[in-house]
Design a protein around this nucleic acid. Structure first.
Lengths: 337, 337
DNA sequence: TGGGGACGTCGAAGCGCTTCGACGCAGGAC
DNA sequence: GTCCTGCGTCGAAGCGCTTCGACGTCCCCA
């Protein structure tokens, strides 16, 4: 293994000079820098990560905690993770993958051993047991999702409340008066996943504001459940003409189910969804949707973390991305009755 | 930060004794060990990862390189990753996430800086440009997938050739004489992804062996493409009664398409697939399938790597998992003509 | 009864890097 | 001409841990 002393000798300087040339923390003459760079290239030098971490108390590694639970759309998690990795690399950092299964002990482990400099935590619950820990940890963290009490924590998320409202407002603008929300699987609400509840709030608020008849229905992530949900909705709200779907897994089967029950989309029934754009656009009937910007969320999270690591004093605590609705083929004005 | 010297003082022993108590590399009396453990607990000591890595030349971190490309089923990648992380943790290791985008430079970086002790590389191509690098790297690696020339490399994969054969043999056993393979998207074959080609080989071999009429058709990962493929197949092979699907994304739309074209599954058309069990089992018509054992592959890969890190001299180079077929509702004996 | 292990512990060296203080030197201000 | 300042570089200390060799003690066997 070639080390910094080898480079120093080869370039005719001291090890500290090589270190400063690499880090830029002290001025180095162009001439010297060039010699050092040449030596590094020639010898194929790579600084030892452990030695660096020990001496500088910086590992240049971020921890990313991903959820494993059911009811969470896997491609979204993946997109997010990839985006975090890509962004971290732009700032010369790497990403350590943790599963939620490891729990608080896992967070402690990687933080207290200085394996990582900072953490990104996904799938935050309204009353997440990890919050106190994250607050006391000596390393900064960014949460994806907003817990009930977010003070002192850096949080990033899509504004799901506004997303719910946006979907309803769109339907209202098209003249629909009776709407329903097909939500995430029941277990997601049971464990008080923040974003799911916010969608419900936004949906309800906007429906009330517009004087619409509305109902909310969680839905397990299976085609059979989708079909059952569609049947129940039509039975209980025969005048239903607008549906908001916040459940990636059943979006397609749900559309199919409605059509098999005799409703044409969008002629008889308008559908809007909150889901990744790729999914909405790829369906047989492309669905008008509010995008779930997983990649942007990942990027933002990583960037906020880098700012905090840089000691930036005014990193915003709350970052809510504004939802954007893309019109596709699943929405139309309500037919005159 | 509490360090090993603090623990040593608190327990009334020398730092080296604490270290040996922790690593078990030298015998320590029960009495002393207990005192040390108590001190560790009381002080909340966690060894500094960087210092450890520097002194022991072991970071206890594995690199996992995941593919980003199109045509690869995301949930499978995720399952695999989670399984690697879980298994690595069993052996007290963590996992650093790299994207394929980083390429050979990324491999070099994490290996040469001693950030990681070993690497797991997914989505290996038949003639993967990373192979020479992996061979010369001073750290062990395990590949998921078999390149054309695998000597000197530790590889793990499902036996896709056998999986292809198994699907055909099942159809043959049910009396089917005309079969087709709906494969992965064309780009997967273009870049010579090993597993896709092996399925084709197995399929063709078994079909020939059984004197069946057969055809192979790559299929883009969209419902529209699935429908088009179904139509073309029926046009070109009107006597078709058996289909093997090796393409997660189109499995469901393909079944739908066949049914819409007037074929009942399994009465008129038997279908077998190579895909994750969850997917096959969750469809409206549960599909007879050969499981893609992502979790098991991940576990095997991590375990092989741990053995190599332990210096085990006879770690097998090739590990091919035997495919298992699960009978479901999509296959039936061929109707008497 | 003496010698040789095994056991349990310690001290010191060193892993490869960063960083702090110091120092020589050139240039500008007076 | 002197003094000060800032630039560019060096040497040494030290980050927190592991590991090697050494040493004392005890026990067992000849």
């Amino acid at each position: 293994m070639v080390k910094i002393t080898d480079v120093a000798r080869h370039a005719g300087v001291s090890p500290s000079t090589v270190s400063y040339a690499l880090s830029g923390k002290r001025p180095i003459s162009d001439e010297t820098r060039r010699r050092i760079e040449a030596s590094i290239r020639e010898l194929g030098y790579r600084p030892h990560a452990g030695a660096r971490a020990l001496a500088s108390s910086r590992s240049n590694v971020l921890a990313l905690v991903i959820p494993l639970r059911t009811g969470i759309h896997v491609p979204v998690v993946m997109q997010f993770a990839v985006s975090v990795v890509t962004t971290a690399r732009r700032y010369d950092h790497d990403v350590l993958l943790l599963t939620q299964e490891e729990g608080e002990e896992g967070l402690h482990r990687v933080a207290d051993t200085a394996l990582v400099d900072a953490l990104i935590v996904m799938d935050v619950q309204l009353h997440d047991p990890r919050l106190p820990l994250l607050r006391t940890l000596e390393r900064p963290s960014v949460l994806i999702g907003f817990p009930a009490a977010a003070q002192g924590l850096t949080c990033v998320d899509l504004d799901f409340r506004a997303a719910g409202e946006l979907c309803v407002e769109r339907l209202a603008g098209l003249g629909h008066r009776v709407v329903a929300l097909v939500g995430s699987p029941p277990e997601v609400y049971v464990r008080e996943t923040a974003f799911a509840q916010r969608v419900v709030q936004g949906f309800t608020t906007a429906a009330d504001r517009n004087g619409m008849a509305s109902s909310v229905r969680p839905c397990p992530a299976t085609p059979a459940a989708a079909r059952r949900t569609a049947e129940q909705l039509l039975r209980e709200q025969p005048a239903l003409t607008g549906v908001v779907v916040h459940n990636e897994a059943v979006l397609e089967p749900l559309v199919d189910a409605f059509e098999q029950l005799g409703l044409r989309v969008p002629t008889d029934l308008s559908i809007t969804a909150i889901c990744p754009d790729e999914l909405a656009a790829s369906l047989r009937v492309p669905v008008t949707s509010v995008a779930l910007p997983a990649a942007e969320l990942g990027e933002r999270a990583a960037e906020l973390l880098m700012r905090r690591l840089d000691g930036d004093p005014d990193v915003p605590e709350a970052t809510l991305l504004t939802p954007r609705l893309t019109e596709r083929a699943s929405t139309a004005p309500r037919e005159a009755p």
